[in-house]
Amino acid sequence: MTDEPTVSDRLKSIGDRLRSVGVQARSKLGEARSRLVAAYHSRPVRQFRSNTLNVIGLVIVLTLILTAIFAPMLAPHDPEEQHLRDRLEGPSAEHPLGTDQLGQDVLSRLIFGARVSLKIGVAVVGISLAIGTAVGVTAGYAGGYVDEGLMRLVDVLLAFPGLLLALVIAGILGPSLTNIMIALAIVGWTSYARVVRGSVLSVKEEEYVKASQLMGTGRLRIVGRHVLPNVMGPVVVLATLDMATVILSTAGLSFLGLGAQPPTPEWGTMISEGRYYLRSAWWVVNFPGLAIMFAVLGFNLLGDGLRDVLDPREEESVQNKGL
């Protein structure tokens, strides 16, 4: 007999190990699955899906996200490929939604346009959220003159027609997507600052926060542990609704000639350039119009649904419809 394990032993041990990995994996999977099931049956989710509109909103938004991610696979043509001789052709098997004034495939441009719209939306909402949260927390926590000063700054921006600011910024930097994003973010962060500040003010008065303050916990810590989780709900709701506003504002700026640089497929530009074909080639203008409509509808429904679940206080955050 030798101490050397035989080949069969080895194989057996490998088999065992594999089996245990499998078992583990299966149990992990089961755990995840049961967690999912539990989550699916949990109160907030039950509440969310009890409303058909919420589910419709979620489906629209998910469709949009998946379209954006898999755009290159989904689009039948290159969105920037021109065929001048095949311009303004009606819907056909080759071009399900027809071609535009440059002979580009409208469907492919819509699909890639989802990417552009989401990119702008996420960037603007992200920047607004970051600035707004920082300002809101600072103002709410510091109080006094800091609060007063920051809130007056918010007032200045609210008193400013957002369009003007966007126009001027687009003017300084030249019309482009990036500049639209910067402009909309500069205009957009104020509502987050207000919501966050409100939440901070109310959380600050809670007993447990006062208690941890007395125990000498650092302010930043308190903000991280108690304030931010409490603010999450209303902020997520606001961000979702804001996505809709940003999509509409971008379309409005495009109409004014400050939109994406060609040949970027952007929905608002597609409508505003296609409006001359309203009578002769309806597909050029109306499909992008429908795309924007569904996207905005989706984010609004989802936002309303999330509000019911996350922010039951029914914030009266009146939305400014873009432009």
């Binding site: 058909t52 509109l53 409006r275 409509m293 569904f294 509808l297 609004n300």
Partner: peptide, 22 residues
């Protein structure tokens, strides 16, 4: 409830200039 909410949202969801031309 659902019907009227969607109806109200449709107006909001259409870009102004597109709705205007239509």
């Amino acid at each position: 409830d659902y019907g009227s909410q969607v109806l109200a949202l449709l107006g909001l969801s259409m870009p102004n200039f597109w709705l205007g031309y239509l």
